Amino acid sequence: MSDQPELKAFWSRFPDLQHQPRWQQLQAQIRLMPVPAGASLFHAGDLCQHYVVVLNGSVAVRRFAENGREIVLYRVGEGQTCALTTSCLLAADPYPAEGVAETPLNLMLVPSAVFSELLGLSAAFRQFVFQAFGERLSELILLVESVALRRLDIRLAERLLQLAGEGQTEIRKTHQELAAELGTAREVISRYLKEFERKGWLQTQRGNLHLLDPDQMQQFLQQSA
C-alpha cells in the first residue's frame, strides 16, 4: 500500500492504527481496484467478501421486485461506503440488492477477515464504519417514508429540479430511469411527465427532458408543502 497515495490518504484518518504492530501486516492485504462504468459489483444473493470504500466515482445500489420493478435505494459516492456491504459483513448474510458502477470507479477493498480485525484494533476506524452505516440507515428510512407517504407528482418534481441543478435545463434521464429512482412503474412516470408537459413546465424528448419553466415547478412544490 506504500506506493498508492489514495489508500495512504484514507488510512491517515486513523492515527491510532499507526501504533499497532499488526497494522503493518494487515495493510499489505488491502488493495485498490479500478472498475469501469456499467460494471456490476454485486448481485442479490452474493456473499460479501470485502469491506469496500469508493475512493472516486458513483455506485447505484438498487433492489428489484418479483414483478420486475426496481428502486434505487441509495448511491455511494467519493469517500463513502455501502451500508448493505457493512450489514452483510457483520451478519454474514448475502446481499439483498445489487450494486452497479454509474461511472468509472476506484475502489478500496478490505478483506472481510482484515475488516473484522481492524474493528477491534482501531476505535477511530470503528467509529467511521458505524457512523457511515447509521447515516445511510437514516437515509433509507427517509426513502421508505417518502415512497409510502408522499405524492408521486411532488417527488417527481423535486427529483427533476435536483437533477437539473442551478441554472441547468437539460436532464438526461429516461422514463425508466426516473421510475427506478422513485420506486414506481415507467408508465406512471410517463403519465406525470405528460401532465407536466401539458402545463408547460417541460418538454419530453427521447432519452432526456428539457425544463421550460422550473420556476413554476418550484412554485408547485411550495404550494404543495
Rank of each mutant, 00 (worst) to 15 (best):
G165W: 10
L193V: 02
E187Q: 15
V129A: 05
V144Q: 15
L137A: 11
W23D: 03
S58V: 13
Q223P: 03
S146C: 02
L107Y: 08
V147I: 14
P104T: 01
L156V: 04
P21H: 09
H43C: 11
G165A: 13
T204H: 00
P21A: 15
V129T: 10
E166Q: 12
Q29Y: 11
H175Q: 10
H50V: 00
W201Y: 08
N208E: 05
F10T: 00
M217W: 09
F14P: 02
D3K: 03
R191S: 03
D153K: 09
A132L: 06
R63Q: 14
G183P: 11
K173D: 06
F196I: 01
A225C: 05
I141V: 13
E195K: 13
Q222H: 14
R159E: 15
L193W: 05
L137C: 09
Q127N: 04
A39H: 11
R62G: 12
A148V: 00
G79S: 11
G57V: 01
L161G: 03
L156T: 00
V54D: 04
A180V: 06
D16A: 01
T103C: 13
L107R: 06
E6R: 08
L212W: 00
R13H: 09
E187C: 04
F220S: 04
F64A: 13
H50L: 01
G77V: 10
G120R: 11
M1G: 08
P21G: 07
Q4T: 04
Y74W: 15
L73T: 02
V100W: 09
P214I: 00
E102K: 12
Q176A: 11
Q218F: 08
S112P: 05
G57E: 01
Q223E: 13
C48V: 06
I30T: 00
C48E: 11
L149W: 14
S12K: 14
F10L: 03
M1D: 08
D3S: 01
P34H: 07
L140K: 02
E170D: 12
L107I: 00
R22Q: 14
M33Q: 15
S116C: 07
L152S: 09
G167P: 01
G45T: 06
M1K: 10
Q205V: 02
A91T: 15
T103N: 07
F128S: 05
A101S: 07
H50I: 01
V188G: 04
L105Q: 08
A65S: 09
E177G: 13
L137V: 06
D215W: 11
K173W: 15
S138L: 14
V76Y: 02
L84T: 03
Q127E: 12
S40G: 08
G200S: 04
E98Q: 12
L47Y: 03
V61S: 01
R155H: 03
T103S: 11
Q168L: 12
P214N: 00
K199T: 04
A28W: 09
R159A: 06
A65T: 02
P94N: 12
L209G: 05
R63Y: 10
L182D: 02
E195D: 06
H50P: 02
E181M: 13
L17R: 02
L7D: 03
C48R: 11
L142F: 15
K8G: 04
L202D: 03
N208K: 14
Q216E: 12
V188F: 03
Q29M: 14
Q27L: 06
L161P: 13
A164Y: 09
H43Y: 08
G77L: 12
